[in-house]
Computed example of a mutant assay.
Amino acid sequence: MRDILDDVLAWHRAGTRFALATVVRTWSSSPRGPGASMAVAESGEVVGSVSGGCVEGAVYDLAERVIATGVPVRETYGVSDDEAFGVGLTCGGTIEVFVELVTAESFPELPAVAAAEADRRATAVATVVDGEGELGGRIVLGPDGASGTVRDPDLAYSVAELAEGLLAHGRNGVLHLGAHGEHRMEDVTVFVESFAPSPEMIVFGAIDFAAAVVRVGKFLGYHVTVCDARPVFATARRFPDADEIVVQWPHDYLAGREVDERTVICVLTHDPKFDVPLLVEALGTRAGYIGAMGSRRTHDDRMARLREEGVSEANLARLSSPIGLDLGGRTPEETAVAIAAEIVAAHWGGSGRRLSDTTSPIHA
C-alpha cells in the first residue's frame, strides 16, 4: 500500500469507500513483490498495480464485487493459458492477492499510518488474510503501540509481537498462527506490511552531476540528502528534488549522523581535500554502497592517499570507484543512470550484464 498511500488517504478523508488489493505472497518469477497494491474506489477510479498489467482486469472485477458485498476475498493467479488473452501471469510466476473493503470506519488508523510514513517513523499493518472469524481483522503497530480490530486478545498480542520483529528488519511477511495466537499452528494467516523509513542516499558534492543523481535517487525511493561545504552551491534552488540540503564539511557531517546497511553514499566531489577525509569516514560505516566519482588517474591517487590514511584493503574493496557501470554515457543524466544501475545491481546481486546475454532467472 505504500506506493499508493497518498491516493487512498485522499479517498479515506473524503469518505470514499474503496477496495484494496494487496499482493500477500509470490512464487517463482512474479512481476511485483508482497506489498504491491491496487485500489479501486466506489466511483471506479483505479490507482496502483499488483502485476504490472497481467491480471489487473480480473482484480478490478474482484474489487467491484468486494465493494458491493463487503466480503474480503483471497485469489491466486498463476501462469496464463495458451491463449494470449487468458487471465494469468505471462512471466511464469504466481501471486496471491487479498482484496478487502476499506472505509473510514474499518480502517481509522490509516491517517496515522500516512503521518508516520511522512515523518519517517516506522509502522506496520498486519491484516488477517485467512482465518475463521477474523478474516480482514487488522493490527496497526506504530510508535505509540498497537491497535486494531482483531477480536481475540491473545491473537492480537501474538500478531503485534511477531509484526514488531518484521518491522525491525523493514520486511513484509506472512505469519501463521493458531486461532488464539498459538505459534507453530496454521489456523490464521496474517500478512504484515512494514512501513519502515525509506533508505537514505547521501550525495556529497553540489555539482551539476549531483542534481541528476538526486533525481534518480528519488525515483528509486531514497530519502536524499545533498551535502557540500560551499553554501553558494548547496541551495534548494539548485537541488529542488532533495529532501535535505546540508552546508557542512562532508566528513564532519557524516561523522555526526547514523548510517545503516541500507544507506547509499555517493561522493561526487573528486577533490582530495574533500573526498579523502570523507571516504576515510565513509569506509568505516555500515553503508551498503559507497561510490566515488573521478577519472582513473583520480582513482589511483585517491587509493594511494587512503592507504596512507591507514584504510585497510578490506575496506578499500568496498569502494566503487570510478562510480557507476560502464554504459558509455557522458551527460549528467546518463551518468546518474550508470550510478543508479550499479546501486541496484549491488543491492540485488545482479551481474550488470545484458539480460539477452544471460540464462539465469530474471527475478532471482
Rank of each mutant, 00 (worst) to 15 (best):
V47C: 14
V246Y: 11
I207P: 04
W249K: 11
V8I: 15
R184K: 13
G70S: 06
Y222M: 00
D357F: 00
S321I: 03
A212H: 02
G88C: 00
L220F: 15
V55L: 00
V140T: 14
D326M: 10
A21R: 02
R230F: 03
A126R: 00
A41R: 01
E105G: 10
R262P: 05
G256A: 12
L325R: 08
G288C: 12
R353S: 13
D119V: 06
D241N: 05
V190G: 06
E64H: 14
R151K: 12
Y60C: 06
A338F: 14
P108W: 09
M293D: 01
V188T: 07
F107K: 04
T285L: 05
V150A: 08
R13Y: 10
P322I: 06
A242N: 07
E261Q: 12
A156K: 01
R17L: 08
I290D: 05
I4H: 03
V46S: 10
A168E: 15
L268R: 00
I4R: 00
A10M: 05
R237M: 12
T285K: 11
G57M: 03
D228Y: 02
I245G: 04
M1G: 12
A292G: 03
G93I: 00
A115W: 04
F98E: 00
I290N: 05
A68S: 15
T358F: 09
A168Q: 14
P34N: 09
V140R: 05
F204P: 04
D82A: 12
W249E: 09
G221P: 09
G15T: 06
V46D: 05
